[in-house]
């Protein structure tokens, strides 16, 4: 175990991938000379050269599509899109090509493409750089959607994604890049299973990505109020590890889903529906959701804080639910 920031963990993953497989290359906006908008690829251009660390024009559709083509052509591209909001300019390639080609061609082609992007709010960069749209992406069959929340996952899920024969979309919460954690180099990191990050018996807080740390902090506060919360990190939104969610709910009988997406049509709604369908009779109360307020994320800190899920709101939602226990 070594200490590393999330950004260092991503960089270590990129480096290991580039060293380990000549088919791997990185392309995206400012990944080369600038070193990456979030400094994840700093130093890689110098080490691996411009053929493998490719700065692209601001042409999201073309370079994501080129990633699809390069994957079809035998390479293992890693495409960095600066933020999830920018990825909307590449939705045609993602939804119409990356996700469909395997099935639509009758199984003739695989698209082993990895796309990384920053997601989420909390940095006062307003409504065109702060949204959490990974739940949208999780709607699409044909791609895989993962949300590493720890430094071990930040590195390990990237390396695991590169072993996949199908497109994997990695959502890195922008707030996490400077945060530090224990990097477990020996961990076997998969792309499919949810992880219990804190064991508890009174309530299951189900979350992913940047919200994990808010959920863990909420669980600590709740512990002081004699409420023992279990915290589940989904890690992967598609495929969704429903059985781990249901096992947790079967134990705690209560669930609060925390999702930085907007409440309406949120990924939290999907988790809630899965619990209704598979764990209804285990529940002692309705599934609760803590999501973002239904507004474009505003710039001033007090408004942004009010718009995003926060520790107090999670604590309150849990207390509300647990109040009814007999």
């Amino acid at each position: 175990m070594t200490k590393a920031t999330y950004r260092e963990a991503v960089r270590a993953g990129l480096r290991e991938a580039l060293l380990g497989d000549p088919r791997v290359f990185l392309m995206g906006e400012d990944v080369g000379r600038y070193g990456g908008a979030y400094a994840c690829s700093r130093g890689l251009l110098e080490e691996f050269g411009p053929e493998r660390i490719r700065d692209t024009p601001l042409s999201e559709s073309a370079f994501v599509g080129a990633g699809i083509g390069a994957a079809l052509g035998g390479m293992r591209p890693i495409v960095e899109v600066m933020t999830v909001n920018f990825s909307l300019l590449a939705l045609d390639q993602i939804v119409n090509n990356a996700a469909t080609i395997r099935h639509m061609s009758g199984g003739q082609f695989s698209v082993p493409l990895v796309v990384r992007m920053a997601t989420g709010g909390g940095r006062q960069v307003a409504a065109q750089h702060s949204h959490s749209l990974e739940g949208w992406y999780a709607h699409i069959p044909g791609i895989k959607v993962v949300t590493p929340a720890t430094v071990t996952d930040a590195k390990g899920m990237l390396l695991a994604a590169l072993k996949e024969p199908d497109p994997v979309f990695i959502f890195e919460h922008a707030y996490l890049y400077p945060t530090e954690g224990e990097l477990d180099e020996s961990a076997m990191v998969d792309l499919t299973r949810a992880a219990v990050r804190r064991s508890g018996r009174d309530v299951s807080i189900v979350t992913f990505g940047g919200s994990l740390w808010k959920a863990l902090e909420a669980a600590d506060r709740l512990a002081g109020q004699n409420i023992d919360a279990e915290v589940l990190d989904l890690r992967s939104l598609r495929p969704l590890d429903t059985s781990t969610i249901l096992a947790s709910v079967a134990k705690t009988h209560r669930a609060v889903v925390v999702d930085e997406g907007w409440r309406t049509g949120s990924f939290a709604a999907e988790v809630s529906a899965q619990i209704m369908e598979g764990g209804f009779y285990d529940l002692d109360g309705p599934v609760a959701r803590v999501c973002s307020a239904e507004v474009p994320i505003p710039y001033p800190k007090h408004l942004e804080d009010a718009a995003l899920p926060n520790v107090a709101a999670i604590v309150q939602a849990v207390r509300q639910l647990v109040k009814s226990r007999g």
Partner: peptide, 9 residues
């Protein structure tokens, strides 16, 4: 874009 990627590969 896909054709560009095939050529890049």
């Amino acid at each position: 874009p896909v054709a560009v990627g095939l050529a890049l590969a």
